[in-house]
Computed example of a mutant assay.
Amino acid sequence: MKRDEPFTQRQQAVLDCALNLLVAGGEKALTTAAIAREAGCSKESLYKWFGDRDGLLAAIVEHQASKVRAPDALDGPFSKQTLIQELQHFAENLIEVISSDISLALNRLAIGQASRGDVALGRTLLHKGRGRIGAQTTRLLSAAMQQGHLETAPAKEAYHVLYGLVLKDTHVRLLLGDELTAAEQDTATVARKAVSDFMKLYGATTED
């Protein structure tokens, strides 16, 4: 399967099985035999769909990253309020996906492999995960700047600021086994606060 082709429903179900195995048993549980048994398919099908183990891991990352609904640049003019709503939806969804047991398991696996000198999964997470999400959101921020809703600045830099305001140190803390407070688990409120702070930094003071 070409990388630019969407996963079929059957392939998505297989990848979900692989993710569940990773969460439940860690790297040792993530074997082609175990995935095939759990998903009810053959190892030959796994190889046909995803290639070798690295290809399977890349597909798992891509599938998990697709759960973050990064906003695309909107067609035509849009209001500042529409921009804020899009960013709030993105921020809330980002927190939920990044904080999930599945994302944490993937990142822990990448860290463990990197400690042994294997950085392939880590690079895949950056490229297929954070990189894809960032590219889409950056285009929206760039369009907002062109329409005068945001002050003119490097859009990629603005995205990194937004990302930091949304997640803060949450991801690192969760990777280290910390638990979120009740207030931090209120993703809608956290997202609104992050976007509000972002607009204070980048929101245009006057609009045409």
Rank of each mutant, 00 (worst) to 15 (best):
R10P: 02
Q88D: 06
R108P: 01
P71L: 09
D16C: 07
I95Y: 01
L174R: 10
E92F: 05
L109E: 04
L106G: 04
V190G: 00
A91R: 00
V23C: 04
T181R: 12
N107Q: 10
L94R: 02
D52I: 08
P154C: 13
Y202D: 03
K168M: 14
L19W: 01
V172E: 14
T152A: 14
D208V: 10
T138R: 07
T187R: 08
S99G: 12
A114V: 08
D54Q: 15
R108V: 04
R108C: 04
R53L: 14
T32L: 11
F7P: 01
V23R: 00
T189P: 00
D186W: 04
R123K: 14
K168L: 13
E96G: 00
Q113E: 14
A13W: 02
G117H: 07
A114H: 04
P6M: 07
H89G: 05
K43H: 12
R130V: 15
Y47N: 11
A105I: 01
D208T: 09
A58D: 12
A24S: 12
D208M: 08
L87G: 02
Y47G: 05
H63R: 14
T170R: 14
P154Y: 14
R192H: 10
T32G: 14
D118W: 09
R130N: 11
A91L: 05
V119W: 07
A194Y: 01
F7C: 03
D208C: 02
T187V: 08
E151T: 13
I84L: 04
A110H: 03
L109C: 11
R123H: 13
M1Y: 07
H127T: 11
L106Q: 03
P77N: 12
V161P: 00
T206E: 14
H149M: 15
R123I: 12
S142P: 00
A29R: 06
H171F: 15
A36K: 05
E179L: 14
V172Y: 15
T205C: 12
V61K: 05
Q146E: 15
S45L: 15
A91I: 03
H160W: 15
A144E: 03
S142W: 06
A158W: 02
L21G: 02
K2G: 07
V23D: 00
L201R: 08
H127V: 11
L22T: 01
L121A: 02
E44A: 15
A144Y: 06
C17P: 00
E157N: 14
